[in-house]
Design a protein around this nucleic acid. Structure first.
Lengths: 142, 142
DNA sequence: ATTATACATTATAATTATTCTAAACTATTG
DNA sequence: CAATAGTTTAGAATAATTATAATGTATAAT
């Protein structure tokens, strides 16, 4: 119960009503050590498997988007037909496994700091992120 | 006609039959000085406006994908709701203007070469691309 | 040239991801 | 504990993309 209380506070701080669906999703997403990368579909599956509950698809979309807006989740752009989300909201890089369609964090210190020599005039840089696409070594790419 | 002949050769080299639809799309995409960033929808619109012709949507998808496969176009990851394509197929990076939602090429020599210290074991790196998100200096980000 | 064949194009249907809608529900406030 | 403002829900709607199957066309073999 104390863990849930934390999530309730977390939601309240972001002026999100701690509904039971939101708290459940928080439990799934934030009660973990390692970063979690997921699509909406992954999350829906996880809800029905791990929690043995049903949260409507529309609610999952709404909740995830609300969390992105409040900075609890980060959306990641991959060349794909789906949106990926990340529980690691810090600026960091990614490996994308083209075989398994899996996203893996690439810690910032795994790449030397990136220096952009010429920026667009009049604009400030908000983020610099690297996407490294990898595939099995013996893959046949024609 | 000599320009079209070039495209016919270009297509033949890639073992793509130079059908009239493919040649038309080549004309639109590759008869230009500057890099062209587009979505399928942009291209379909351009075909009907610029050429006053109709190429079926399925053909536009097939053709663009064939061009990506043969290295005439490059797919870029920005938004996950649509696929963006780029006539600049060289390894290069992108600025994404968060105010205007515009994509701007960032040439490779604008960033020092990126060294990934530890790669995923058993995988080979297919591409390394940087996305630099920029916004107006006096923008209000909440 | 003509024909046969393999590949392309097309309209349309199907699929997939996501958003919208409007009614029922629930957390908060008074 | 009622009022109300925000939330959830199922299902419909929309948007992007892919599949299908019939028709058309470029190429290679006659």
């Amino acid at each position: 119960m104390s863990r849930n209380a934390n999530f309730i506070d977390k939601l309240r701080e972001a002026r999100l009503r701690p509904t039971k669906q939101r708290v459940k999703i928080c439990e799934l997403l934030f009660n973990r050590e390692k970063t979690f990368h997921f699509t909406i579909n992954d999350l829906v599956k996880k809800i029905s498997e791990d929690l043995n509950e049903k949260i409507s698809l529309a609610t999952v979309y709404n909740t995830v988007h609300a969390f992105v807006k409040k900075g609890y989740l980060k959306e990641i752009a991959i060349n794909s037909d789906k949106s990926y989300f990340d529980t690691n909201t810090s600026t960091h890089h990614h490996f994308y496994d083209e075989d398994t369609h899996e996203l893996i964090d690439c810690e910032q210190n795994n790449i030397d700091s990136i220096n952009i020599k010429n920026n667009i005039t009049g604009k400030k840089i908000n983020s610099v992120e690297v996407l490294i696409k990898v595939a099995s070594d013996n893959q046949n790419h024609n």
